[in-house]
Computed example of a mutant assay.
Amino acid sequence: MKTLYHPAASRGHANHGWLNTHHTFSFANYYDAERMHFGALRVLNDDEVAGGRGFGSHPHDNMEIVSIPLEGDLEHKDNMGNTTVIREGDIQVMSAGSGVVHSEKNKHADRPVKFLQIWLFPNERGVTPRYDQVSMDTRAEVDSWQTVLTSQDDSQPGTVWIHQDARFRIGRFSADSTHTYELSGAGRGVYLFVLEGSAEVDGQALSRRDGLGISDTTTFSVKVGADGARILAMEVPMN
């Protein structure tokens, strides 16, 4: 088993006043040739947007974009006609495909919104842009790896899908427990991102907002720390 450890403090960071953001992989003005992507996972941004502020209309193409709110409400608008709000417990996907323009804004003026912005390389270019969001069953993630995102071929009720053979799972694990993760096929890797709490994998201690890439294995175990843990597992093709 190969592992790639990214402590939270090693991430790129920018504070623009209205936006306080941390970049696990190279993004915007943060560049590290050793941190361009993990397989098909290209961007993992940990964003906090001040009340009433946000990202104005801007274009994307040929990228699968996933947003997971961790606190607060995020308003989304796009040129496909969607005007929606995503909240803690939701997951949103946008297939930029042949081209889309969208904006994102903190719905509230009096408190921040915190969310993960995740980009993946698609397995097909030039697809018709699409948008979707669901409310996750957070009860199902208690001491279990709850699937929240899949490929189109593996889509199921209560999940979103993207144009990539990826699988996202979220688990909220009890203190001092151990949980096995089984990869769904060969040539795949898992990037773990600790949302809260602490854990250990293959002797590597992980704390809040630490990341660990895992590859060249079919299974691994996560030992949860004394304070419990909530972990996002992003399984992607490595080639």
Rank of each mutant, 00 (worst) to 15 (best):
L70Q: 13
L44T: 00
G189Q: 12
G228M: 10
E71L: 13
F55M: 02
E64H: 11
K223R: 14
D73L: 13
G185A: 02
I68N: 04
F220S: 11
N62T: 04
A199Q: 02
G225K: 11
V222A: 06
T150V: 11
L41Y: 15
G52L: 01
K114A: 05
G185E: 03
G225F: 11
D165G: 06
A14S: 14
A8M: 01
H102P: 01
G158H: 09
A96Y: 01
G171L: 03
A28V: 09
I91F: 12
P69K: 04
G51R: 07
R209C: 08
G225C: 13
Y31G: 00
V127M: 14
D73Q: 13
D137K: 15
Q92F: 01
D154M: 04
R169T: 12
E124G: 15
D227N: 08
I231P: 03
G203K: 15
W145R: 15
D132P: 06
Y191V: 05
G72V: 05
T147K: 12
S215A: 07
F121Y: 11
R172S: 06
G97K: 05
V93S: 05
T138I: 09
M63V: 15
G17V: 02
S103M: 09
H37E: 12
H13D: 01
S174Q: 01
F27H: 00
H58L: 10
N79E: 07
N79M: 06
L212C: 01
A9F: 13
A14N: 14
V43T: 07
V160P: 01
L192K: 02
I214H: 09
G89T: 04
I231M: 04
F27T: 00
G72K: 06
D176W: 12
A199G: 02
A205G: 10
G99D: 05
A233I: 07
N20V: 14
T24R: 08
P59E: 13
A186I: 07
V236W: 08
W18D: 13
A166H: 14
V160A: 02
V134N: 09
I65W: 14
E75V: 13
E34S: 13
H60I: 09
P7D: 05
G56N: 10
S103W: 00
R230Y: 12
P129M: 10
N82Q: 06
G54R: 06
